[in-house]
Design a protein around this nucleic acid. Structure first.
Length: 561
DNA sequence: GCCGTTTTCGGCCCGACTGTTTTCAGTCG
């Protein structure tokens, strides 16, 4: 997937933010943002030739991107970077603090980072400042604390991109990532990469363009900081101990402790170099051999958290986990009729390329006013889908909608309209701070609506940005199980919602799940792999996930058979 | 800055909410 696209989009997005911070025209800001979104979602690699065919990219932006492709930046971006400290841009990532207030704080008080702002608030330096009352100060502090709690960890999407970039840059005999990324943890603090190959790989690694700082460099291990802020460790592994090293560096620490204890009980020793009986090597080349020698089945990385997987593996009772190739479709996607950037036709074609048996288009409903959805538009889309269906004999197109769950739990089309959709995903998009009781009632009301099939991105969190809403999830899941309402695993990597611990809880109550991409562009369709990671960490089998089911069974469940 | 069966200028997704004000600016989705 086009890394150049993502980097160019990130640069343009940064330019938009800096431009806004300098009091730039709001329409131009929006132009840059729109172009950044289009470029990130453009399915082909960026080139000088394809650039102008991207919607939202005109002459001026094309010139900037051309310069970026040549030298990794463009003149206007360099200018603005020189004028506004990076920390001021970080200020705008605090919820409820936008460019106007950020610039004001910088100019009036010289505040140039979230930490400096927190300090200024605590020192009372904002007292009497126009537009900053007690409540605002409180909200800002809360926002900064939430940001600090999430620390330097990044979501799976960013970490996966970086790991794949590192792997592609190194000509090793064998190379793979281990650690929390391999276990598909929801956030990643650093990346562990194991390689077999020439010692010169270390030097080559340290000189890569994504490396901003070399923290440590030795014969076996090199640690660097990268342009995404993330630390990456590269370890050179002897070919014969690949399996042992993968077990050791994949972790988790708790899982390793358990299996090392098992080795000790047999009078053996398990290390990153192998499983040994005294000096005699028992197993080291593959993970399978090591687990087998310990009397257990190979444990999928997503389960290696000492959450019962060791005992299950010893008994030969590990679940048959859901895998990406089990998925037969996607039940939550958007088009450019609302906030997607690709047309219905292009999204359907891309879905067919992925070999789906069914594909639901679920654009937003009228409550999200900015999307300008109307009944006429929805019905026109339905007619186009029926027409388009003729081109896809092997893939059923489903016409759906992503409804908005209002504070009282109602949704935004009348029942007779809802009845016309094949699938209704209902999600919370506002009023995140309702009390636990209100929020619980809200979700239960949505589950009890007979036209609501799926609850979309249930906790509505955004990793590193917005905390999850507060609800009595047990009560919500009981209602979902009772009404047959599906809980979504939204695969979009900054959402990762439901998180795996809640998936596990919901499954305990008998809930079924849908692993959806929530795509707003063609490349997003591939995000489902992250949702599969969440599902695996929650021990889900294909039967737990409705979009592994054959079309007939799914339609019966949706009441559309 | 972009874009055009309203077009090459003059629009540009629009309304709600919050906290601050005392009629509104800023932020968000």
């Amino acid at each position: 997937m086009g890394r150049a696209n993502d980097e160019a989009a990130a640069a343009l997005q940064e330019y938009a933010e800096l431009f806004a911070l300098n009091g730039g025209d709001a329409f131009r800001v929006r132009s840059y943002q729109r172009a950044a979104k289009s470029i990130a979602g453009f399915p082909e690699d960026l080139t000088r030739e394809t650039l102008r065919s991207i919607p939202g990219v005109g002459e001026a932006i094309a010139k900037k991107i051309e310069e970026f492709l040549e030298r990794g930046s463009f003149r206007q971006l360099d200018d603005l970077r020189g004028r506004v400290p990076e920390g001021v841009r970080a200020l705008t990532r605090i919820p409820s603090l936008g460019p106007k207030k950020a610039l004001f704080l910088f100019q009036e008080l010289g505040i140039d980072s979230p930490a400096a702002l927190a300090e200024a608030i605590r020192a009372g330096r904002l007292n009497g400042l126009r537009g900053f009352g007690a409540k605002t100060e409180e909200n800002l502090l809360k926002g900064i604390e939430h940001m600090e709690r999430s620390g330097d960890r990044v979501h799976l999407g960013i970490a996966t991109d970086l790991a794949e970039r590192v792997i592609a840059s190194l000509p090793a005999d064998r190379i793979a990532f281990a650690g929390s990324l391999r276990r598909m943890s929801e956030t990643i603090g650093d990346i562990d990469i194991l390689a077999v190959g020439d010692p010169a790989l270390m030097e080559l690694f340290a000189r890569q363009p994504y490396v901003t700082e070399v923290i440590a460099k030795g014969e076996r291990k090199t640690s660097v900081r990268t342009d995404r802020g993330l630390q990456v460790d590269l370890r050179l592994i002897p070919a014969e101990s690949w399996g042992a090293a993968m077990v050791y560096f994949t972790g988790s620490k708790e899982h390793n402790v358990r299996i090392r204890e098992m080795a000790v009980k047999k009078g053996w020793k398990l290390s990153e170099y192998g499983l040994f009986d005294g000096d005699r090597l028992i197993a080291s080349e593959t993970e399978e051999e090591i687990y087998q020698a310990l009397g257990m089945r190979w444990v999928p990385p997503a389960l290696r958290e000492d959450g019962g997987e060791v005992d299950a593996a010893l008994r030969g009772e590990l679940p048959r986990l859901v895998e990406l190739h089990d998925l037969r479709g996607d039940l939550h996607t958007h088009t450019d009729l609302t906030d997607g950037i690709a047309s219905l036709e292009d999204m359907a074609a891309a879905a067919a390329m992925r070999g789906y048996s069914y594909y639901a288009v679920t654009d937003h409903a009228p409550d999200l006013v900015m999307q300008r959805m109307t009944l006429d538009k929805a019905l026109a889309q339905r007619a186009r889908i029926a027409e388009l269906q003729k081109s896809y004999p092997d893939m059923r197109l489903l016409h759906g909608s992503e409804l908005n769950i209002a504070p009282d739990g109602s949704v935004d089309w009348p029942a007779e309209v809802l009845a016309g959709f094949d699938v209704c995903v209902a999600s919370v998009h506002s009023h995140f701070t309702q009390s636990r009781e209100e929020m619980t009632r809200r979700f239960i009301a949505a589950c009890e609506n007979p036209h609501v099939h799926v609850i979309g991105h249930p906790t509505t969190r955004k990793i590193g940005k917005r905390p999850p809403v507060d609800a009595d999830w047990e009560a919500v899941f009981r209602a979902a199980a009772r009404t047959g309402t599906i809980m979504e695993i939204d695969s979009y990597p900054d959402r990762a919602d439901l998180p795996s611990d809640l998936v596990r809880l919901a499954r305990h109550h008998g809930v079924k799940f849908s692993i959806d991409s929530d795509s707003h562009a063609i490349p997003h369709l591939a995000h489902q792999r992250f949702g599969v990671g969440i599902a695996q960490r929650a021990w889900l089998t294909p039967d737990d996930v409705v979009n592994t089911w054959p079309l007939d069974r799914l339609l019966a469940h949706l009441g559309r058979a």
